[in-house]
């Protein structure tokens, strides 16, 4: 899976590239409009991560051009501009998804994976982690032959865990993934614990292994022991 990351802030660019490389993506970087144009003219990418505000040009122009030349390329916009108008404009122009800075790296990974699943050329609609099998179209989870009865939140949580397997997921990142902006309304993250407890119970009751590991004071990790 080959990615191009277009972002003018070098530090953020390096962090994202470092992280996504460790997740197994082949990453190339472009810090300016000119560099991005050059790379896109020569190479073909599966997914482009695009910052809309670049010092020497508009990300929207890149977006338009990309949609014309390589309509099959997935586009994920990363931008600090979180106004509804910009978001709609980006999606109207053919972007596949939109993530607002500052984002959690795990969230970015999650969105990328969802994007890959949606693109037809991949055809990878089933995600497997040992005995756990997730059908993303039907939103069904099986352990062996047994179908798990999960609530929507539990399903989202499990998918998030599996996609970001082996990584420490902070409580903040999990909460934001599951509840979005509404998470501002509550002071503590106790209720994440409830959902995780239920998910663990359902996994073990269906004969699966409890892969969820609590990490002291910070969050959770979905991993083989």
């Amino acid at each position: 899976m080959k990615l191009l990351i277009i972002e003018d802030h070098i530090e953020l660019l390096r962090t994202v590239v470092g992280y996504l490389s460790s997740e197994g993506f082949l990453c190339e970087e472009a810090a300016t409009y000119a560099a991005a144009e050059e790379k896109l003219g020569v190479y073909h990418y599966d997914i482009v991560l695009l910052d809309l505000t670049l010092p020497d040009g508009s990300g929207l122009d890149i977006l338009r051009k990309l949609k014309e030349d390589h309509p099959e390329t997935g586009i994920l916009i990363l931008s600090a501009k979180d106004s509804l108008d910009d978001r709609l404009k980006g999606l109207d122009e053919g972007a596949d998804d939109y993530i607002t800075k500052p984002f959690h790296l795990a969230e970015l990974n999650s969105r990328l994976n969802a994007l890959i699943r949606r693109s037809s050329f991949q055809g990878r609609r089933t995600i497997t982690f040992n005995e756990i099998e997730i059908e993303t179209d039907a939103k069904e989870v099986r352990i062996g032959e047994r179908l798990l009865e999960l609530t929507k939140k539990e399903y989202d949580l499990l998918l998030y865990f599996v996609v970001n397997k082996g990584r420490l997921l902070t409580k903040e990142a999990i909460a934001e993934h599951l509840w979005g902006d509404q998470i501002d309304m509550v002071d503590n993250f106790d209720f994440i614990y409830t959902h995780i407890k239920n998910l663990r119970k359902k996994l073990t009751l269906s004969g699966g292994t409890d892969y969820v590991q609590t990490v002291y004071a910070t969050g959770y990790k979905f991993t083989e022991r």
Binding site: H9, E11, L12, V16, Y19, A80, D82, P102
Partner: peptide, 9 residues
């Protein structure tokens, strides 16, 4: 937001 994104990441 960009420095914040860097800090967080």
């Amino acid at each position: 937001q960009t420095p914040l994104a860097v800090i967080r990441a």
